[in-house]
Structure formats: structure tokens, C-alpha cells
């Protein structure tokens, strides 16, 4: 079964949904409902035997690179590219087909946002490569 990474970017994607409102402007209850939906998706995937991993990423991060021979690593904490470049978190799923991965992604994107309305968030779906080739050449 193929694995897929469902990457949550909140504001990112091919276009902004016209009704998008940043979470900072939601009510507490709206945020609670949104988070409960994320857990609900995780539960559903576990029950169906499709769950591999879920992680949220801190929006704060640092760029690090090799500094050259004998030098300390080079770091910078900004400026980061626009928010749209940042991943907020992901689900990794192991499903029967690409169609099923899209179905899960669309469901994830229907998470309630401002006013309890679906967020219509763009979810980036990336196939995860397997390590081994098929045994039949």
C-alpha cells in the first residue's frame, strides 16, 4: 500500500480561499472545534488501519548549514520566506490508492474554521517513496 504525506500549510496553496481568516481572529470555541476535528481525523485513520504518523511543527525555526572545514555551523533565524512556504504539520497515511489519499485530504481540509465553516484549506498530498522495487523485474 502506498504512503502519502498530507501536508498542512493553512494559508498556502495555489490560491487563498476567499473566506480565510487567520486563527488569531477565531474565538476560543472555534479553535477548540478545529483541534478536536484534527484528533477526530487521527482517530478515524487509526480505526481504519491507515494511520502512520501525525506531527505539528512549531512556526519558529532556524536555517542551519555546514560552515566549511573547521568552522562552526552557520545559522540564521530569518528572514524566513513568506508564511505560505511554511508547513504547519502533517498526517502520514498508508492507504489503498491515490484516490483514497485525496479523499482523506479533502476531509482534512473540511476542518471547521471561523464561524464553524469549513476551512477549505489546501492540503498538499505527496507520495512517499518506498525503498525497494517490485520483486518481479
Amino acid at each position: 500500500m502506498p504512503k502519502y504525506l498530507l501536508l498542512k500549510r493553512y494559508t498556502g496553496g495555489p490560491e487563498h480561499h476567499p473566506n480565510f481568516v487567520p486563527m488569531s481572529e477565531w474565538t476560543e470555541d472555534e479553535i477548540t472545534a478545529h483541534m478536536a476535528f484534527q484528533r477526530h481525523v487521527g482517530e478515524l485513520l487509526r480505526k481504519r488501519g491507515e494511520f502512520v504518523d501525525v506531527q505539528a511543527l512549531s512556526p519558529e525555526g532556524t536555517y542551519v548549514r555546514y560552515g566549511g572545514p573547521g568552522a562552526a555551523p552557520v545559522t540564521t533565524d530569518g528572514p524566513f520566506p513568506e508564511t505560505k512556504e511554511l508547513a504547519a504539520g502533517w498526517f502520514m497515511i498508508d492507504v489503498e490508492s491515490e484516490a483514497r489519499a485525496y479523499e482523506v485530504a479533502a476531509y482534512l481540509s473540511s476542518a471547521p474554521g471561523k464561524g464553524g465553516q469549513p476551512l477549505y484549506e489546501w492540503i498538499e498530498v505527496r507520495p512517499v517513496m518506498s525503498g525497494a522495487p517490485a520483486a518481479v523485474e
Binding site: R46, R48, G49, E50, F51, V52, D94
Partner: peptide, 15 residues
């Protein structure tokens, strides 16, 4: 063998 958590495989088998 399928590189998934044991609990996921347990669910899949039980379903």
C-alpha cells in the same frame, strides 16, 4: 514489513 505502527496493522487485521 509494511513500515506502519503495530496498532495500525492490528486495526487493519481486525477489520
Amino acid at each position: 514489513a509494511f513500515l506502519v505502527p503495530e496498532s495500525t496493522m492490528a486495526q487493519r487485521i481486525s477489520r
